[in-house]
Simulated assay, not measured.
Amino acid sequence: MMNNLFSIFDPSTNILNLSINWMSIFLSFLFLPYMYWLIPNRHFILWKFIMLKLHNEFKTLLKNNYFKGSTFIFISMFSFILFNNSMGLFPYIFTSTSHLSLSLSMSLPLWLSFMLYGWLNNYQQMFIHMIPQGTPTILMPFMVLIETISNIIRPMTLAVRLTANMIAGHLLMTLLSNTSSIIPTYLIIIMIFIQILLLILESAVSLIQAYVISILSTLYSSEVN
């Protein structure tokens, strides 16, 4: 039962032992460069408005660390995660963000680059972040240990947060759809209504998770002074 349930996340479609499911990642790029072949329409104007709002918000979070173009990486991450989350809501399209292999490949290099830059260029400020202001002397070793552990697990928490949220919603929709064959006919309409509500909820989760991960990544980078 459980193996069949989680098989919806298994990249099983392959040709010559090459997993074709992961090609769904590149579907998101079809929605990005409107300006190269389309006259700016309402969709493009809305997307540009969202990008400008994100740019201003990330610029505020970065504070003194902001320089021209520094928000592009976080806006790109937001766009990439949002489009891949949304692609996974369509039937027969592989949900790539429900796998740790993708989410970790984004969060781990980003966190590692922040850490290397911070410790190599401003190690005194990095040590200051290990001990919160006003910490009693006797608690300082414990605070350093706790802060070190929390810092090390940051990429894992980012990856697991995205993966777990995408898996949870898809599993719930799959469980409900599997029961449609055994429920009475008059309950089918109620089941369809519940599935529509879940689909709307998953659409909101796709947007919220992309926003949360990009915001947290920006906050982590702002600590590297």
Rank of each mutant, 00 (worst) to 15 (best):
L139E: 00
F83P: 05
G118H: 10
I149W: 14
F80P: 03
N151Y: 11
T60Y: 09
F94G: 06
S79N: 12
H170F: 05
F74W: 14
F78H: 01
I146Q: 07
F127C: 05
L172G: 06
S86Q: 04
L104S: 02
E147S: 15
S113A: 15
S76F: 15
K63R: 14
I50D: 11
I131M: 04
S180Q: 14
T163H: 12
Q125G: 12
L145N: 04
R161E: 08
S180Y: 09
I153Y: 09
M156Q: 11
S103Q: 01
M126A: 10
S150F: 15
T179F: 09
N121R: 12
N64Y: 15
A164Y: 13
L172T: 14
Y66W: 15
I152M: 06
S98G: 10
S79A: 13
P132V: 00
T135K: 05
A164E: 09
Y66G: 07
P141H: 01
T135Y: 00
P109G: 07
I149G: 12
S113G: 10
G118C: 08
S113L: 15
W47A: 10
F127R: 05
M77K: 02
H99R: 09
Q133K: 12
F72W: 14
N85H: 06
M51L: 10
I81H: 06
Y117P: 00
I183M: 12
K63S: 12
F90L: 13
S76R: 01
G169E: 04
L175G: 00
F94Q: 05
H129T: 07
P155Y: 13
H99D: 08
I182L: 11
Y117Q: 10
P155G: 11
S180R: 13
G69I: 05
M143Q: 08
M115P: 07
M126D: 03
Q125A: 02
L108V: 03
L89F: 07
I153V: 13
I93R: 01
K59W: 02
S70T: 04
N85S: 08
L116D: 02
H55Y: 13
H99C: 04
S70A: 15
S177P: 02
N84S: 09
A168V: 08
V160L: 11
N178I: 01
L110H: 06
N122M: 08
L82P: 03
V144T: 01
L120V: 09
V144L: 08
T97R: 07
T185A: 06
F94Y: 14
H170D: 05
K48L: 07
L158S: 09
P155C: 06
P109N: 12
K53Y: 10
N85F: 02
S150C: 14
F67M: 04
S177N: 09
